[in-house]
Design a protein around this nucleic acid. Sequence first.
RNA 1: UCCAGCGUAGCUCAGUGGUAGAGCGGUCGGCUGUUAACCGAUUGGUCGUAGGUUCAAAUCCUACCGCUGGAGCCA
Length: 462
Amino acid sequence: MLTPTSVRDALHSTGPIERVLVQGWVRTRRDSKDFSFLELNDGSCLRNLQIIAKNTLPNYAAVQHLITGASIVVRGALVASQGKGQSWEVVADSIEIVGASDDSYPLQKKGHTPEFLREIAHLRPRSNLFGCVFRVRSRLAFAIHQFFQERGFVYVHTPIITGSDCEGAGELFRVTTIDPKNPVRLPNGEIDDAKDFFARRTYLTVSGQLEAEAFACALSKVYTFGPTFRAENSNTSRHANEFWMIEPEMAFCDLNGDMDLAEELVKHLVRDIRENCPDELGLFAKFVDKDLLARLEFVVDRPFQRISYTEAVELLRKSGEAFEFPVEYGLNLQSEHERWLTEKHFKCPITVFNYPKEIKPFYMRLNDDDRTVTAMDLLVPGIGEIVGGSQREERLDVLEANLRRHKMNLADYKWYLDLRRYGTVPHAGFGLGFERMLMFVTGVANIRDVIPFARTPGSAEF
RNA sequence: UCCAGCGUAGCUCAGUGGUAGAGCGGUCGGCUGUUAACCGAUUGGUCGUAGGUUCAAAUCCUACCGCUGGAGCCA
C-alpha cells in the first residue's frame, strides 16, 4: 500500500522516487505529441506538480479531456524533469479520474479578480491567491500561539455567549430562543427576558477582555484568541461582523509594558511569516502589493514610533495639510489623520497613547493629569488601527466613578469590580485584529478576502 | 447608515442615440518536452431589474437591486 505524497513533499524531494502516489486537482493540461502535461495542485503549497501522461495509458483519451478542476489520483515515478521551470515531475503509470469537471467550472488558469472569486467562496481556495492567503492565515494563527506560549502566557477561552451588553465596543447580536411569534410578555407588554434560555438577555461577545482580566488577576499572563461579533452596519474593507481577535492581558503591567508587547508581537508575526511563507509572500508581492516586501522589512528593522495623543494633535496642526476634518484636542483622530501620521509623516507603524478620557471607555486607567487615560492604538500604514489597548483602571473608587460618569449600572459589573476589591493589581492588555494583521502581512486590501467565508451586512450566503 | 463610481458573453473589458464586439476560457483541428505554450476555426448575450423619453435605447431620465471605493463605528 503506497502512502500518498503531497505535492509540496514531492517538489522538495532530494532524489528520484521509483513509486509515488500523488492526488489533487488539475490546474491545467497541455498536450504534446505523444503525451500530455498535467499541472496537479493539492493545496499543500503554491506550486503545481507536473505530471507526464503518456499516450500509452489505457485511459489516455479520457485524460486528454481532463480540464481545470478535475480531481485525479496518480501513480508513477518521481524523476528529474527534462524541462525548465521545475526540478521534479511525475511520469504516470496510471491516472485515476476521481471526479471530472466541465466547462461550467468558473475558475480558469488565468488571473481572476478577488471580487469575482468572492462570489464563489466555496471554490476560491482552489485559486493561487486564496490558497496562499489561507495557508498564511493558518501559519499566522500558529505563530500567535507560539509567541504567547513561549512567553509563559496561558490561553484562556472566554465565553462566546455573554450577558454583558454595555462593554462600549459597539452593537451586539442577540442570542435567544424566544419564539418571535409567541414570546412570553410582562404585564407591561415587554418581552420577559427572564423566560429566555439563559433567564436573561444574552449576546454574542464583542470582546473577551473583561473575562480575560479576571484570569490575568489569577494566572498573571493570559491571552484569548477566538471569534468576535459586532452587529455594526459597517461597509468598509476593514470591517466584518464576525472576526477573530487576540487579547493578551497582563497583571503587574503598565502601559509601557503593554506597548512593548504589542510591538514585539507584531514584529514576531511579520518575521515568522517572512521566514515560513516565502512563496506565498512572493505571490502577494507580485500580484497584490508591489511594496509588500519592502514594507515588511521596514517593520522588522525599525522601532515603532510612539507619540502621545497631545503630540499627535500638535504634529497634525503644524503639518500644513488641508484635512477634511478638524484637528482639535478632545476630538477623535480621523482616518485621514491616522493615515497622515503613519503613511506620510513617520512612514512606519506608530503607537499613539494617552487619549482624552472623554473619548475612551470606562475601564481605561485615568492618568495623574486627570484629563487623559492610558489608551494606546497601534496604527500601521495602509490599514490604520491594528491594535487597541490600555492599562486598566485598578482603583476601585476611580473605576466606580468612571462607570457612573458613563451612566452605567454598577450592579451589572459586580464581578468586574470584585477584581479591584480583592487583591487588585495594575494590569494592561490589548486587542489585535487577526484579519487586520493578516491583511498587513499579505497586502490583501479587503478583509472579506482573508476570511474563509466572510460575514458582512447583507451577506452570509456560504 | 452617508457620499461617489460601476453593473455588456463563463472571466476581463470596449461600445455614450442607428446591425451586439474583442481578448481569454470552452469545443474541434494543427504543431509541439510544454509550462499564463503556440497557430487556425468555432461556441457563446433577457446589455443588473422595472418603468419612462424617442421613429429608434447597452447608450438619455427615474426608482430599485447588487458590487466597488471613501466616511463613520472599531479589531
